[in-house]
Design a protein around this nucleic acid. Structure first.
Lengths: 236, 236
DNA sequence: GCCCGATTCAAACGCCCGTTTGAATTGCAT
DNA sequence: ATGCAATTCAAACGGGCGTTTGAATCGGGC
């Protein structure tokens, strides 16, 4: 009824509704990851959560808003932790020279910590996030942009400082490559099978030990032009 | 009727049916990219292609088989070109030492050439492919695995030769990172907006000039352990 | 000129979707 | 105990989905 629509922004209604809300969020996180947003129906979702079909619209308003809530629940704390870590290493290095490694790690570690924290969604969520990056739905794209804009801007400045040999534009591209490798890897527990056995990311610390040297070397590389020109047109 | 099901494997029925089939494939490539597989309905797809609704099932059997046909049309030639280029540089370097750059370029250039070839789908297709990588649908995953297995295996051997300092497992991970950065970048004409203006990949040769130094440096980097250990647990 | 397989077409099939409704139920403040 | 807002529930709404059907149309070989 009319009440339900405004009820969501009522006074703190934790213990009573949080249970249903949380069960919906948990089931949604799992199913959206398993089958994607479009392919997950509210009927199977609410059944998995053990709640009534109408509960999603009552508590979240719509399926799209539920999806955003699923992302927000994990992204907000993670990105906040990223910013806090960056601020701390900036503060610690009262002098100027920020090392590329430290900035990169400040960015990677919160993601890895989230992946490791099974109580809070763990790998499920990062896989979901990795796929959301590639989703063309406008409501997902604009939502993610808003969620990340602030953090990305901060890190871009920090990297610019740590990698003075890169122009702003060159750095923008490289951060893009970094995010690509990261999201693809985190999203890929399935995709890994494309390449080989690979003992799976059972150990996330190990994954960071593999990913970090690759990304640091890529970031530090001199831009093309310092090395020989390439003749890519060839071939025919 | 019963005929239609077997007709697809009849004798070469080019000029007559190819027109309808091609129009379906072109429209599908565009719409699957724009809205994703699930969110694209056969009704809007056949309307965009200017063909009858039933034409998809008649010519391709099902929506899923249409999707596979869309991928195959571009992937088969691209991966074959990748293998041919690898074989050529292996042949040219009659001696042993294959350079990492050359192997990587043999892998990247066919993708870039496809992206540049607007007559054959161009960027549309690579964006579609990038998203297919991240799609969890089993029929997509197994299809892509089959399409890529052979090519990936060949390149893994070549890289193993060009990068003798990497163990097989380390290399598997790094190829994964490479594919992540590549697919994310190719898929991302939208996603780029996440980070900044970035003049868009209007010039694909320029993109390769930015991507290549990053990836080469990442591939050549010594594995962790050669550099200092990291203390990632910290933070609390 | 006709025939027959290949193709196109309009219509329908059964199914599941996201959302809404209004009545039951709950549980806390009074 | 009662009242009332917050929540849950079963049921239904309208609509779009992928697919199937059988008739209409096409077009080259005899």
């Amino acid at each position: 009824m009319a009440v339900s629509r405004t009820a969501r922004k009522g006074v703190a209604l934790d213990a009573t509704s949080a249970d249903t809300k949380t069960r919906i969020l948990d089931a949604a996180e799992l199913l959206f990851m398993e089958h994607g947003f479009e392919a997950t129906s509210l009927r199977q979702l609410t059944a998995a959560a053990g709640v009534n079909l109408a509960a999603v619209n009552y508590h979240f308003g719509s399926k799209e808003e539920l999806f955003q809530a699923v992302l927000t629940r994990r992204l907000d704390p993670m990105n906040q932790e990223r910013i806090e870590r960056l601020e701390r290493i900036e503060r610690d290095a009262a002098g100027k020279p920020l090392s590329c490694e430290k900035v990169l790690f400040a960015m990677l570690i919160p993601a890895l910590r989230l992946a490791r924290d099974e109580r809070r969604g763990g790998k499920n969520f990062l896989r979901l996030l990795g796929r959301a990056y590639a989703d063309p739905a406008p409501f997902i794209r604009s939502f993610l942009s808003a969620q990340y804009a602030q953090m990305i801007a901060r890190y871009k400045e920090a990297f610019l400082q740590a990698l003075p040999h890169l122009s702003r534009q060159e750095l923008t591209w490289r951060l893009h490559f970094v995010m690509g490798a990261l999201s693809y890897t985190l999203a890929g527990t399935d995709a890994l099978k494309l390449f080989a056995q690979v003992g799976a990311a059972d150990n996330d610390e190990l994954l960071l030990q593999r990913l970090a040297p690759f990304l640091v070397a890529g970031l530090k590389a001199p831009p093309m032009g310092d090395t020989r020109k390439l003749e890519l047109v060839s071939g025919d």
